[in-house]
Amino acid sequence: MTLGVFLAVLGAAFLHALWNALIKVGTSKVGGMVILSIVEVPIGLAVVMLTPAIDPAAIPWVIAAGCTHFAYKFFLTYAYDRGDLSRVYPIARGAAPMIVALFGAAFLADAVTHQEYIGIAVVAAGILLMARGVFTSGEDRKLLPFALGSACATATYTLIDGLGARVSGSPAAYVAWVFVADGVFFTLGMLALRGWDVIPRNWQAWRMGSFASAASYGAYAVSIWAMTFAPIAVVAALRETSILFAVLIGWLVFGEKMGREKALASVIIVAGVMLTRL
């Protein structure tokens, strides 16, 4: 992985933590995610018009990605209803790199060194340590199945997106079409489950949701682009350093506690990132 790709993925990690924080801010997490999804559609269509067409062979990958992104958003929003950013986010993101790495080693042709796999394991260990507080701090354990469901969906769409972008011949256009499919699927799904009242009616919610959607696109597009130049498992692991940004946002903006355990987990994550770079 080159330095440029490395820094780009770190930027994507920050954007990912940022849009999650914006969703967490709202009184209705599902409503905020619906706004984000609605805005995704015009963003995606605008990018489609400015980029080369994708190979038709990538269409099934786009549809599969849209479905798995629906599952990811569904589980994540319900987890945020039950826990804070610095607990839900690590759990939701923590298991994904391990799943991706194991699958990649077994079924994909990506060349990942032993040191990079050690780095992936260290990053995952730090993220899991960050999430440990759900068991020791008396927090709502009902967030766990939703957060873990989100982790499984994250691992699935990471693999789908990495392969789909390679098949597409145009990663930017692929991301744009996935955004469209994702936005349409989630919006229609939530309308079917919750009715029209799920859509917030106030301007502040729309402003925050729109900004979150733009940040989401930036994080997603950079990550998919990076996967065309570096092994999927390594990009997926490095992207999980967004936990550092999420913890800082939770601490400085939301007033969440920063104990020794969180500080130690942050150091472990940074160490894992360095192993993937050296």
Rank of each mutant, 00 (worst) to 15 (best):
P60L: 13
S86G: 11
V62F: 01
A181C: 02
S86W: 04
P90C: 12
R207S: 11
P42K: 09
V178S: 10
L76A: 04
A165T: 07
K262C: 06
M1L: 13
K142V: 06
E240Y: 06
V9S: 02
L248Q: 03
R239I: 06
G32W: 12
V222A: 12
E139T: 09
M130R: 11
V47S: 07
F211R: 03
G11E: 05
V47M: 13
L129Q: 07
I120H: 00
I243R: 02
S213P: 01
V48G: 03
G149Q: 10
A237S: 15
V30D: 03
G189E: 09
V175Y: 02
A101F: 10
G209M: 14
V100W: 02
P200S: 08
A205N: 13
E116N: 04
G149P: 09
V175R: 05
S37F: 09
D197E: 14
I120P: 01
V134R: 11
H114E: 10
S216L: 15
G31V: 15
V235A: 01
G4L: 13
T51E: 13
I232F: 03
T158C: 01
A246T: 07
L36G: 01
A13S: 14
W19R: 05
R166L: 14
L85N: 04
W206V: 06
I268S: 02
I269E: 01
A155C: 07
Q204E: 10
A237H: 04
M130S: 15
T77M: 14
W251S: 03
A96G: 06
G83V: 07
R141T: 14
P52G: 11
Y72W: 12
A53P: 08
A215C: 14
M208I: 15
A233Y: 01
L18F: 15
A21R: 08
A21K: 12
A236C: 01
A111K: 12
L193I: 12
I127P: 01
A96S: 14
L102N: 03
A17C: 08
A53D: 14
I243K: 03
W206H: 07
S150N: 14
D161Y: 06
P56D: 05
I23S: 13
